[in-house]
Design a protein around this nucleic acid. Structure first.
Length: 316
DNA sequence: AAGAAAGTCAACCGCCCACGT
DNA sequence: AACGTGGGCGGTTGACTTTCT
């Protein structure tokens, strides 16, 4: 049924009483979920206000739409944000900022709401711990130069472990999982484009992120013929000019690569002298971070802390 | 064990834009 | 051109859960 043709038999005769009936708010009940799912499965979605009426839901159209898109939709993926997804979120956020829906397009099954929540609860939390604004250049570059490479390193390590396990006939479930994430989260585009062949980072393959910009045969114009400004993002350099992750501690790497950018970037080491109060961070937060049980979900793990501290001391 | 604090996330709100009339 | 409506978006809230003291 064409949703455009949807029309409740009584939609034209909705009584004022019904019109003014108090709408439900707050958490959805199982019955409401069933009603919404059943209705959409037979009639399709769209025209949310009339859909809400016709489905007999005392909800606003917006509420129905939100419930469907963020929770009931069959392809919605739940659970922890994977390392690959974290990397992708950081990468895309560095390009587009708080364009959550746009970012969500590149993470199949994830909703803009979920990504937004992830950003606010995890990323902003760590910016707070570093005593800098999440939108500050300091924090952004710290993410680019330190955090994202560390994520890549961890992804590689997980992949290597999984590969080894598979080679020895061990449980390959992890391998399958990681492969799935890489192929489906990072290398997929909203329009179904396939990304460029995998680049290598530190000797391991990492799929190049395919965006409308770079999936259109690397041209400088988009599918509408509009000029698309090249993404001058260090992560692109990172993907396209693989450098062993260990070299990230080498200031020369940054200085050499920065030459490609019109805007000179301050190396992360510079920040250790300029702004980030790592001593305070160490005093205030290290114990908390170090003692955190689940490191997999933390942006900074024990190694990161150690790494940051080394950088700090080397630049004293 | 219990209360407080912090974290998480579903849901709501208000604004904006596109589109039809 | 003006208006109404539907839908999408980012920001915010608040209930619930988890962790800490």
């Amino acid at each position: 049924m064409d949703v455009k043709d949807r029309d409740c038999n009584n939609s034209a005769n909705i009584s004022e009483e019904e019109e003014q009936m108090d709408l439900r708010r707050g958490p959805w009940t199982v019955e409401e979920d069933f009603a919404l799912i059943n209705y959409i499965s037979t009639h399709g979605d769209g025209r949310w206000n009339s859909l809400a009426r016709c489905a007999g839901l005392k909800r606003t159209g917006k509420s129905c739409r939100l419930r469907w898109l963020n929770y009931l939709r069959p392809d919605v993926r739940r659970g922890n944000i994977t390392l690959e997804e974290q990397l992708l979120i950081l990468e895309l956020h560095s390009r587009w900022g708080n364009r959550w829906s746009k970012i969500a397009q590149y993470l199949p099954g994830r909703t803009d709401n979920e990504i937004k929540n992830y950003w606010r609860t995890r990323v902003q939390k760590h910016a707070k711990q570093l005593k800098c604004d999440v939108n500050s250049k300091q924090f952004k570059d710290t993410m680019r130069y330190i955090w994202m490479p560390r994520l890549v390193e961890r992804i590689q390590a997980a992949a290597a472990t999984a590969t080894a396990a598979a080679a020895t006939g061990g449980d390959s479930s992890t391998t399958t999982s990681n492969t799935y994430q890489l192929n489906n989260s990072i290398n997929m585009t909203p329009t179904g484009h396939v990304g460029f062949p995998p680049a290598t980072v530190g000797g391991a393959q990492v799929n190049t992120i395919a965006t409308p910009e770079n999936s259109s045969t690397a041209a400088s114009s988009d599918s509408f013929g509009n000029q698309v400004s090249p993404v001058s993002d260090l992560t692109d350099q990172y993907y396209n000019n693989p450098v062993p992750v260990n070299n990230i501690q080498n200031q020369d790497y940054f200085q050499v690569n920065q030459a490609d950018f019109s805007e000179s970037l301050i190396s992360p080491c510079g920040y250790f002298n300029q702004g980030l109060d790592f001593q305070a961070m160490e005093q205030n937060n290290q114990s908390q971070w170090m003692e955190s049980g689940d490191m997999s979900d933390n942006l900074w793990n024990a190694e990161d802390i150690w790494f940051l501290q080394q950088q700090f001391r080397n630049n004293m």
